[in-house]
Structures are given as structure tokens and as C-alpha cells.
Design a protein around this nucleic acid. Structure first.
Lengths: 146, 146
DNA sequence: TGGGTTTCGGACTGTGATGTCTTAAATATC
DNA sequence: GATATTTAAGACATCACAGTCCGAAACCCA
């Protein structure tokens, strides 16, 4: 069975959560992120770059440079991150790949899956980065990678 | 956003549903399937081969040969098909990729996602091919690809 | 001004999934 | 038995995603 998010997207979420644990406005380098999160250096760089391009993150070059959240953690939802990397096609396409599946012409699992899909979407929209980060803060970060 | 099933798996589901609409025991050739379902000929061949290998389908070579369901449609669940192609890893791994996410050490969306994952699993287990095919029979097949 | 540090951007490689092609094996019909 | 038809099986090609590498641009500090 295939999974919900691409690996890029998983990394993006982990990175954004890590940044949310930092004091507001403090810059964090890729070097620190890659060490703490165990994500390939250059790959993570590209992902953060992409997030910065959408305004979700800010970036600064040079020493003391790095990345930080582009707005307050509570104003960033899980959906914002996922949508920036993987898009939101899953909200539209039929789960079984029937090309003409729609509300007027539903397939056999259309309604059942539609309900689950809505629940997933709601979860992504409701979860904001601030409260997620707070949950993780309870224990030391690496062991809290859970 | 990435999707729930691989393309192979989507094709497998579509193929099995098509076979379920046929009289019991009647063989259907790849040629017919590929034409009606608009799936690449040889690729579909490999997928059906694989399903036959697990016993989900039976196959016969030669003229009048083809594929048919390996047991009664009502005894084949959606999970059987999905599991044969994509496996069932999704029931185990953390949706955000945190390597050490577990019940004892849950991430922020662990419980929420876990509940949804269970619902998806239940859907796959409960939906059998017979009733799904019956739903689709209501309209002409191609336009019922929905 | 110059050197070191960091992100930026593009090109490149590796890998797995998707899709194609060809030959062999099995079966039905004549 | 010969031939046509169909699946079986493996090699091959193509493509998207994952991951690497390098030079350039921006920035800080001495």
C-alpha cells in the first residue's frame, strides 16, 4: 500500500516542526536541521528552499543565516505544508483511479472514501504547527520523533 | 499529496471488478480487459499474472483462455486485492515519517491518524467485490467508471 | 576590501515504479 | 501433428522521485 505523503513532504513537516520549537525569528541552519532530523543535507536544503519560495519560511544567507518560520506557528496549518510540497490532488481524484468518478456518477466506494478523505482534509486544516510542536516538546526532541 | 494506492493497485481493482461482472467461471482475455478499461496491455498482463500467482485469479492459456476470479466474488474483499499488490505497510508506519513514532511515544497526529487509518482498513475489509460490482452494473460500464 | 559562511539554482546520478517488447509454454481447433 | 491464440516470464526502456554535487550570490565579520 502506498502512503499518504511523499518523503519530501514528510521531511518538510519535520523541518517546519523543528523550526517551530525555536524562539521566534531565530535563524536555524540546514547544518543543524540535518543533524537533528537525520535528513540528507542537500535534499533538505532544496525542500526548505521550496518552502521559502512559497513564503511559508523566510531565509537569510551568510553566517548567522538560515531558515525561520515565515509567520506565527499558530497561523501555519499542516495543510499549508503538505499543499506546498505535494499539492492537494487527493481531494479530487477517485481513490480507485476510475477516471470518470464524480458525485453524479459515483463508484462503489465513492461515498465511503469521500467521507474519509474529508476527515483527513479536516485534520490537515485543523492541526496547526504551534500546537503540534508543543506536543512534541514534552520529551527530548529526538526521542520524541514519534 | 500522494495517493493511497499505487497505479498497479488501481488497475488491479478495476480488473477484478470487471471480471466480477462476468458469469462465474467464464474466461476473459487481456485483450478485452485492456480495451474496456483503457489500461496498457502488457502492464495489465503482468498485474493479472501476479494476482493469479496469489490465487485471487485463475488463468488459462490458449484460445478461449484468459482470466477469471479464483473464488466467489463475495469472498474477495477490496483488502485482498490491495494487499496482493501494495501490501499493508500503511497499517504500521507513522504518517509523517517520524521513525520512532509508536503508541508509547506518539507524535502529534498519531491518534487522529490512527483512527482514520483504522477506518480505511475497515472499509477495505468490509467491501467485497460482489457488492461493489453490483453497484457498478447499474449503468453502462465505461460510463460507470466512477 | 577580503575571506569565510550560508542559502540559491541548476545539473547530475541513483533507484524504484511504470510501461514495452520479445520469446517461450500451454491450449484449442482443424 | 500443425497452426493460431493466449498467458508466462524476463529483458529492456521510460519516467518521476530521491538524493548528490558544484558554482554563484548574498551576507557577516574582521
Amino acid at each position: 500500500m502506498s502512503i499518504l505523503f511523499s518523503r519530501q513532504c514528510e521531511y518538510a513537516i519535520q523541518g517546519v516542526l523543528y523550526l517551530a520549537l525555536k524562539p521566534e525569528g531565530e535563524m536555524t541552519s540546514i547544518k543543524e536541521l540535518t543533524k537533528r532530523l537525520d535528513i540528507p543535507y542537500h535534499f533538505l536544503g532544496k525542500i526548505l528552499q521550496r518552502l521559502a519560495g512559497t513564503g511559508l519560511l523566510t531565509s537569510l544567507k551568510g553566517p548567522t543565516g538560515g531558515f525561520a518560520l515565515g509567520r506565527k506557528a499558530k497561523d501555519i496549518t499542516l495543510f499549508d505544508v503538505v499543499n506546498a510540497i505535494d499539492g492537494s490532488d487527493f481531494t479530487r481524484n477517485c481513490v480507485m483511479g476510475f477516471p470518470e468518478c464524480s458525485g453524479k456518477n459515483p463508484c462503489s466506494v465513492h461515498d465511503t472514501w469521500g467521507r474519509m478523505r474529508d476527515e483527513i482534509y479536516d485534520m490537515l486544516i485543523r492541526k496547526n504547527i504551534a500546537e503540534m510542536a508543543k506536543d512534541m516538546k514534552k520529551t527530548e526532541y529526538r526521542s520524541a520523533r514519534s
